[in-house]
Every structure is written in structure tokens, then in C-alpha cells.
Computed example of a mutant assay.
Amino acid sequence: MRTILITGPGGSGRTTVAAATALRAAGEGTPTLVVGADRTDTLGAALGAATGPEPTRITPNLTAWRPDAAARFREDLTAFQTRAANVLDLLGASRLDAEELTPLPGAEELSLLRAVRDAALSERHELLVVDLPPTPRALDLLALPEELRRYLRRLLPPERQAARALRPVLGRLAGVPMPADWLYETAARWDVELAAVEAVLGDRRTAVRLVAEPGPAGADAVRTARLGLALRGLPTETLIANRVLPEAVPLHGLLAQQRKALAEWTDALPVSPVAHLGHDPRGADDLAALAVPGVNTGHPPVEWPVVDRTAEDGVLVWHVPLPGAIRDDLDLVRRGDEVVITVGGFRRIVALPSALRRCTVAGAALRDGELRLRFAPDPQLWPR
């Protein structure tokens, strides 16, 4: 399944663009599912038909869905209490009833990610369009699967499950109870679910469409979004320049800002201007009037190649694309077989490619929107 993730700064019209993208693909004969993330039915308002926790057929080829994060949270926590019944009874803890549970921060994000996973694994649709939250929340959301899997592996390493027979003995020696099998089984199940989400996000058929109004605020938001997405290895397929004013409008200051932003964007990535309709688009006719781009078959993945320059310079060079990055905002730390990259308020811990794990860091440079990390082979680890 082809997946298109759509985000942009708040108020940029990303939900409208998501609805228009899905409607166009469905009109061209592609079975399409559009998933919304907002609590209020902004997606339904754009489509001209109410959407909710159950998939709703909008047209013969278009289905809309807004997952219910509260219901999913109640189901998950109720199941967790059932599995942890013995521990809760030992602690004397009283269980929470499903009716009194309200979602905790992050529950909506997890619900949306699982909905994306479920939709991508379904064979009923060929295209999945996801209306993500505004850009800052969307970038945190896209980072969540990898970060949670990392935490799980550190807190409950899978290899410790092999010592099940020794746990009672170890518990007596340590004087503390050892984690029960159900805890490892729960962690393993979560790891599988998060891995499935990561697989969807990392699929070469998955790409991001940014939505922004051409102007100073939109230009800043796009620069930030491109950097955050690149650090996550997600390709920006196109930038939807939304609500573009016609040149005949007598607003010379706004038109000048618009031209400047469009020129800057066009030099950096594919841009698809969408004209301002003069009102908020509502319903199929208005959405059809928006010239959103069609859906292609795929997009080249973001590559982080390692180039062998040992013959010329004695080093291996790791190329990491970071468009818009500033040297003063960049910080790098190697920790064992990982490197911690912090740039522009974003942070990611990345496992080194296998060849670089046997090397020492020889330097780094940021040029033309690309970080180049130089590694010198460690003679004690490399064969002669």
C-alpha cells in the first residue's frame, strides 16, 4: 500500500489538502482510506460528511476514519490490569474501571500510529492518506516508535527472557522479585507492534507532503519540518503551497512575501501551488477545485550512504542529509556503536553501520545541507 503522510503548521489547511488528495485519488479509481487525527471532525467538515471511530464510506472508492483514542486507551489499560492482576493484588492496589479511565498524554499519538499500522496492513485499500497533527506534534509522533522500542530494549532486554528457569534463584539471591513472564511477553508484543509501525514509516512507498502558506511564517515552518523529517529518514515528496493569492490581488506586500517564499521553496524541493478559493473549502466540489498533485507510484528513499575513501584519504565517509541545518545548532556524540545527533531542536540516536563500528571518528563537516562524518579504520579491528 502507498502511504502519504500530510502535515504542516497549524492553520495551514493540511486537513483540507489531505481530504482533497484522498478525494482525487479515489476519483481516479484508487481505493483510498483517509485517516484523521483531530478530536473534532475537521476531516468530515472538509469532506462534507461526518466521520468517526468506525470507517465511513464517502464515495465508492473513498473511506474516512477517525480512530477513537479514548476507547483504545481504555481497552489497553483494562487488558494490562488483567495481565498484571497478581502484582496488583500483591501490592494491594485497586483496579480502575473502564468508565473512569481518561486518556493520558501520548494516548492519541499511539492510537493514531496503531491505526496507521492497521490500515497499512489491510488489503482493502491501495492508498492510505494520513492527516497528521501540526508539524511539531507530527515530528514527535513520527519519532515515537523508534524511541519507545529503544526504551523497551533497555528496560527489558529480550535476551534476558532465556533465563526463565533461573529467575526464582536470582530473585532469592538478589532479594528482590524478578520480572514475570507476562511482563516480557507484553514488552515483546509492544515491540512487534512498534516494529510494524516503523516498517510502514520506513517503506519506500511512504512519503510526506508538507502544507504551508507561502510567507515568512510558512517558510520558517518548512525549514524546520524538512530538517526534522530528514533526521528521521523520511522523504519530503512535495510541498503544497496552499492558499496562493492571484497576482491581480492589490496586496503588494503580501504578494512580495509570497513570491519570495515560493522562490526559496522551488529551489529546494518540488512545489505544488494551490490557489486560494476565497473561502474555506467544504464538500466534494470545493475539494475538486483545489489543484492538489496526483499520487505517483513511489519516491526515492532518503539514503545515508557510507562512501569508502580509504584508498584516497584513509577514511570512510558517512553522508547524512540535513537540509537547512546550521553548524552552531549541531552536536554529535559517539556512544559505543551509536551516534547521538542533535540539530535544530531535534535529537536522534542512530546505530552506526556495521563497517563504521570498527572505526574511530576522524572528523565531521556540514556542507550544503549534508553532514559528513569521517571514520578512520581501527587497525586492531580491521583485518590486514
Rank of each mutant, 00 (worst) to 15 (best):
S272N: 11
H319L: 09
A289N: 10
P136Y: 03
P168G: 01
L96V: 07
R384D: 11
R114W: 05
A241E: 00
G283L: 01
P158K: 02
G202S: 14
T56P: 00
L234M: 14
L142C: 04
L356T: 00
V200Q: 03
P145Q: 15
R335L: 13
L356G: 01
D313V: 11
G13N: 06
I4Q: 13
A219S: 15
V343Q: 01
L255I: 06
I240M: 07
L166E: 06
R384N: 07
L127S: 08
W265Y: 03
A25E: 04
T30V: 11
T78P: 09
L142A: 05
R66D: 05
L88E: 07
D378V: 02
L255A: 10
P158R: 06
G345H: 03
L371A: 10
Q257I: 00
I240R: 05
P270S: 11
L112G: 01
I349H: 08
D329W: 12
R232V: 04
A188K: 12
R358Y: 03
P293Q: 14
D329K: 15
L33D: 09
P235H: 15
L139A: 07
T297F: 06
P134W: 01
A362H: 14
W382S: 04
L183W: 04
R74G: 12
E370S: 07
V350A: 10
A163S: 08
V274Q: 13
M1F: 11
T40G: 12
D97Q: 06
A20T: 03
L332P: 09
E198W: 05
K260Y: 12
I349G: 09
T56E: 14
V249R: 12
R124N: 03
A217C: 00
L173D: 03
E185T: 13
A311V: 14
R226F: 12
P246Y: 15
S111E: 03
A70D: 13
L373S: 01
S111W: 10
T266F: 04
L166M: 12
L112H: 03
Y151P: 00
V320L: 15
S354I: 02
P273T: 13
L121G: 06
A20M: 01
A163M: 08
G36A: 09
T56Q: 15
L262H: 15
W318H: 08
G27P: 09
E213N: 10
F80I: 15
L139D: 08
G336Q: 00
P293L: 14
P168D: 01
D68M: 13
P377F: 02
E147Q: 14
G175K: 03
A37T: 14
D203K: 14
P157N: 00
A241S: 05
R39L: 09
L239E: 03
L104F: 13
A268R: 13
R348F: 02
E237W: 03
V361L: 11
V17E: 12
D131C: 11
L96Y: 06
A26N: 12
D328C: 08
T15K: 04
G106N: 12
Q257G: 10
W65P: 06
T236W: 01
V197Y: 06
P281M: 02
I58P: 03
T236A: 06
V34M: 01
A19W: 05
T16L: 12
P293S: 14
L127W: 06
G8E: 02
P55N: 07
